[in-house]
Simulated assay, not measured.
Amino acid sequence: MANWGFLGAGSIAGSSLAPAVHACRGATLHSVASAGPERARALRPLRTHTSYQELLDDEDVEIVYVALHNSAHRRWAERALLAGKHVLCEKPLGLSAAEVDAMIDTSARTGRLLVEAAWNRWHPRTRAMEDLLAAGSVGTVTEVTARFDGLAPAPGNYRHDPALGGGALYDVGYYAVSATLAAFGWRTPRVTRAVQEYWYPGSADRAAAFRLEFPGRGSAEIRCSLVGDVAEEFTVTGTAGVLGLSAPAFCAGAAPSRLTGGDGVTRVFPAVDPYRLMVQAVEDAVAGRPHHLVPLEQTRAVAATLDAVRSACGPAPVGVGAANGPLG
């Protein structure tokens, strides 16, 4: 039995993580800390707090889920680790590879578990895709095309604010980059073209498009946006075949999904709750039972690639539009 504490009671905590903890074998949603008491109570914890530190001081809390805006991840995940808690932190774990390195170091020093809540990595289809690619089902991977266009955030949402770690690249771009790195065996890519667009002067990016080259292998074309035209696509081409995911390519779960492998066989996966699988995996890891967790070195690889893309895009322009040319 493990007691969970949530830092934050936003939309994902309410719609996905709280139900997953309530449904998980052996898990208890013990405490939720939020500036909005009503939002905290809506998650049905045993106890609520208006102070994040108050929750961390609660000796009954064993696992902390960090559900705050992106720029707060490192600060509160490290505070939770130093308070002796295991941590499941929303993605992206950190806003840079340097932040991720610091968090990994704190986890190692405290002897507490640190896991990035990249929930789709626990979906059986994602795991099957990664296994098939690792086994060479399409031969040597030569080309990847990935696209994730998500819903436009409401006015005032943190995703508009670069100071809070907002933007399409950190949000939906994360999924496309993670899947692409998995397809190329987690090799380090080189960014050869990158451009971002912005909602308004000083905002975070609303869209990004970039090309990754994997020396000696192949390349990937990736697009992501938060402008409202929803689309999720992912295709891997290799020397021996093509692997493709049915839409939604990254956020499957609520409905059956399909994967067509390099062998031409289409595999069907029933509807599943990946958040519940993720929570159960963390529970099992803490309890010392067999489990599957996303390796922190892969978390860092995604962060390093996002660093490289942002660097290639350069600083945001003064006016609205693209940083170094239209997306096209």
Results as ranks from 00 to 15, higher is better:
Asp161Trp: 09
Glu283Tyr: 09
Ala154Val: 12
Arg41Leu: 10
Asp171Cys: 12
Ser178Val: 06
Asp273Ala: 05
Thr48Met: 01
Thr188Cys: 09
Phe184Asp: 02
Ala249Asp: 08
Tyr275Asp: 04
Ser34Val: 02
Val115His: 05
Asp284Gly: 05
Pro315Val: 14
Ala18Asn: 04
Gly173Lys: 06
Thr145His: 10
Lys91Arg: 13
Asp171Phe: 13
Arg193Met: 13
Gly253Val: 06
Tyr174Asp: 04
Ile63Ala: 03
Thr48Cys: 08
Gly84Phe: 09
Leu56Ser: 01
Asp205His: 13
Ser246Ile: 03
Ala128Gly: 05
Glu213Tyr: 06
Thr260Ser: 02
Val66Tyr: 01
His22Asp: 01
Ala80Gly: 07
Pro162His: 12
Trp76Lys: 01
Asp60Gln: 14
Ser311Gly: 14
Gly14Pro: 00
Ser15Phe: 10
Ala303Asp: 10
Ser31Tyr: 02
Phe234Gly: 03
Gly5Cys: 01
Pro215Trp: 10
Gly328His: 14
His22Trp: 02
Gly262Asp: 04
Val309Gly: 10
Leu151Met: 12
Ala27Asp: 02
Leu81Asp: 02
Phe269Ser: 02
Gly139Pro: 08
Cys251Leu: 14
Arg74Pro: 07
Met1Ser: 11
Met278Pro: 00
Ser178Gln: 12
Trp4Asp: 00
Val87His: 03
Glu62Ala: 08
Gly10Asn: 04
Arg47Lys: 15
